[in-house]
């Protein structure tokens, strides 16, 4: 164990090492998790690809050039063109912006709602039953009709309020978040129910820590592992739900490229031009996989009992 090796000799310089921010410990452990580091590298690469890429590869993703449609890889079109002659590389870059943003924001929002409801339901007994019935209600709701209604009701007002892209973006993020928080809430509630009976929570009460800080200081850090897992799974679900919505015509309009839409557009040509499906597919998979690995490494790094093994 590295930890015993580190602390065994009572060296004077270590003796008066003041307490430091715990995130340094987390980082110390995280950087020894190879999968997580690789995941982090890939994820950063993807973020760079979609944010800085379009500044270097300045091609309009919407420019139609029928004459050069369905082309393979070449110097002019590094990843070929689609059935309308639009440049695939530019489309993947712009599409990535929306897909990654939707994935991250929707996951984050879903996580916040789920964790909040889970903690409140688990910690405060009065809210348990109403909130869990609400969760059941959302679990029982058929997803697509709900989304259809949401889009029909709110699309136009939101578009006039935030402009077309932001309007659709906020609608989709909200729709995905509102339909994906339930699992998190269930898991968190279960864990909180068990945690709040632990003696260290009682000890905090005997110190006089108010409920809010008991939750943020003692309960939440200890339910971080399941939250982390559902977060990493959530980002994948969010990206894929967004593609499904775009495919149904409920998401972004057709001229907005997203990875999901590029994937679905390429589906009809999968036999002639498989690369049309492979590229967005690979990017979605890489994003999901890298986030999964980051989450895995983070979960291990956040748990002091695993740290140092």
């Amino acid at each position: 164990m590295t930890e015993t090796a580190k602390a065994a000799p009572f060296s004077p310089d270590e003796a008066f090492r003041p307490p430091r921010n715990q995130w340094w410990d987390v980082w110390d452990q995280f950087k020894y998790h190879r999968g997580a580091l690789a995941g982090l590298a890939v994820f950063v690469a993807i973020i760079v690809f979609v944010t800085i890429g379009p500044l270097i590869w300045q091609v309009d993703p919407g420019a139609i050039n029928i004459r050069s449609r369905n082309q393979g890889m070449s110097m002019t079109y590094p990843l070929g063109t689609d059935q309308l002659g639009r440049d695939m590389l530019a489309r993947l870059m712009y599409g990535g912006r929306i897909s990654v943003a939707v994935g991250l924001v929707a996951m984050f929002l879903g996580l916040v709602i789920g964790t909040l409801i889970g903690v409140v339901a688990g910690y405060f007994k009065v809210f348990d039953s109403p909130l869990m019935r609400l969760t059941d209600l959302f679990l029982a709701l058929p997803l697509l009709p709900l989304l259809l209604i949401l889009v029909a009701l709110f699309r136009d007002p939101l578009e006039t309020m935030f402009g077309q892209a932001m309007g659709v973006f906020s609608l989709i993020v909200f729709a995905i978040a509102i339909t994906s928080w339930m699992q998190t809430a269930r898991i968190v509630r279960g864990d909180v129910l068990a945690l709040k009976e632990r003696e260290f929570v009682l000890a905090a009460r005997s110190i006089g820590t108010p409920s809010l800080r008991i939750n943020t200081r003692h309960v939440l850090p200890n339910v971080l592992s399941p939250i982390m897992v559902s977060a990493t799974l959530g980002i994948a679900t969010a990206i894929i739900t967004e593609s499904a919505l775009s495919f149904l015509g409920l998401g972004f309009p057709p001229d907005f490229p997203t990875w999901g839409r590029i994937l679905y557009d390429g589906r009809d040509w999968i036999e002639q031009y498989p690369s049309r499906v492979v590229w967005p597919g690979v990017l979605i998979s890489l994003t999901v996989l890298s986030v999964n690995y980051i989450g895995d490494g983070l979960r291990d790094a956040l748990d002091p009992r695993i740290r140092g093994r």
């Binding site: 632990r198 260290f200 905090a204 200081r217 002091p304 009992r305």
Partner: peptide, 12 residues
């Protein structure tokens, strides 16, 4: 407290 294992928050 009785159980020193349970009465200390493992994350602190």
């Amino acid at each position: 407290f009785q159980d020193p294992q349970a009465s200390l928050n493992p994350r602190m």
